[in-house]
Design a protein around this nucleic acid. Structure first.
Length: 284
DNA sequence: CGGCTGCCGTCCATTACTTCA
DNA sequence: AGTGAAGTAATGGACGGCAGC
């Protein structure tokens, strides 16, 4: 499966989308996306999208805003089902578009695999990793339960912990490398791309920040520990030196061994300088 | 202008669940 | 098969910033 999204290349790209994520070494799988609009342009685009009832075809036909997807059936359905219609129609942004699509997609496609499951199976299976099947099984269940989850948001039931697929995690990781905080638009975009709820993306970033912080704390702790050890060693060395000097002083009076030294302070710069007797003799 | 209130986003501690050894 | 540890998704509460009144 190849999913390529190219959205203009102008002024202020959203870098986390701009950067092609390395989801997998497998060629079958790949997102190629770039959002290059300025914030204002994106805002107006979003407004336009909402305003015209979310006509995806119109938006995507913008010469500067192109989405190349090898999922014609998917976007046909998106368009036909009016999924992209905005809040005016009461679309819950926390609801997965794909899930909303699922019911109708099964009508459109007689295959038992709805648009959702087909999309997701491709998404997991092509990576060929050992977790593929397990991921799919879990995800199939997730997909089927998600609709109800999203409808009622786990109302009454115990929370379900959903494991993100490798690809989803990798993509989120790539995004996190770009910025560890998301604005609402980025969150929505990511959620859409990864077929997750915005809340899940949000939570993932929260937890990721927490993990980063924890790791950084561990690193800092380790560094401070090393500093402490170094200073302790230095302290020990200096103590030893002082002891040796004291011992030397008691055996042989200091003034017999060393030239007389005076400390003087410069009144202007307040620097302390040492002047030994020998220096004085030679006129330094 | 300052105070109050509601909304929203983030952080943090914690829980609940999954995976693995 | 059972179990504990580790990892992590999800939750709930606290808090701060901001806009509207």
């Amino acid at each position: 499966m190849e999913l390529g999204l190219s959205l203009d290349g102008s002024s202020k790209p959203i870098s986390f989308l701009e950067k092609t994520p390395k989801l997998s070494s497998n060629d079958h799988l790949g997102f190629c996306m770039g959002l290059g609009r300025s914030q204002e342009k994106r805002d107006s685009l979003e407004a336009e999208r909402r305003g015209n009832g979310g006509d995806l075809k119109r938006v995507f036909s913008d010469p500067h805003l192109q989405l190349h997807l090898r999922l014609p059936w998917l976007f046909d359905n998106l368009h036909e089902t009016g999924l992209s219609k905005g809040r005016g129609r009461g679309l819950d942004v926390n609801r997965l578009p794909m899930v909303a699509l699922a019911g109708e997609a099964t009508v459109a496609h007689s295959s038992p695999n709805s648009a959702v499951s087909s999309f997701q199976m491709d998404f997991w299976f092509r990576n060929g990793n050992s977790r593929g099947k397990r991921d799919m099984d879990a995800e199939t269940e997730r997909g089927s339960s998600r609709a109800s989850d999203d409808d009622e948001d786990d109302k009454g039931s115990s929370r379900k912990k959903l494991r993100l697929s490798k690809e989803q995690s990798a993509f989120l990781e790539e995004s996190f490398k770009e910025h560890n905080n998301l604005n609402p638009k980025q969150k929505l975009a990511l959620a859409k791309q990864l077929n997750l709820r915005p809340r899940q993306v949000e939570v993932w970033f929260q937890n990721r920040r927490a993990r980063t912080k924890l790791k950084q704390t561990e690193v800092d702790c380790e560094y401070l520990k090393r500093c402490c050890e170094t200073l302790t060693e230095e302290n020990r060395r200096l103590h030893k030196e002082v002891q040796e000097l004291r011992a030397l002083k008691t055996c042989q009076p200091f003034y017999m061994q060393l030239p007389a030294t005076t400390l003087t302070m410069c009144p202007s710069c307040e620097r302390v300088t040492t002047t030994s007797a020998t220096d004085a003799k030679i006129g330094i």
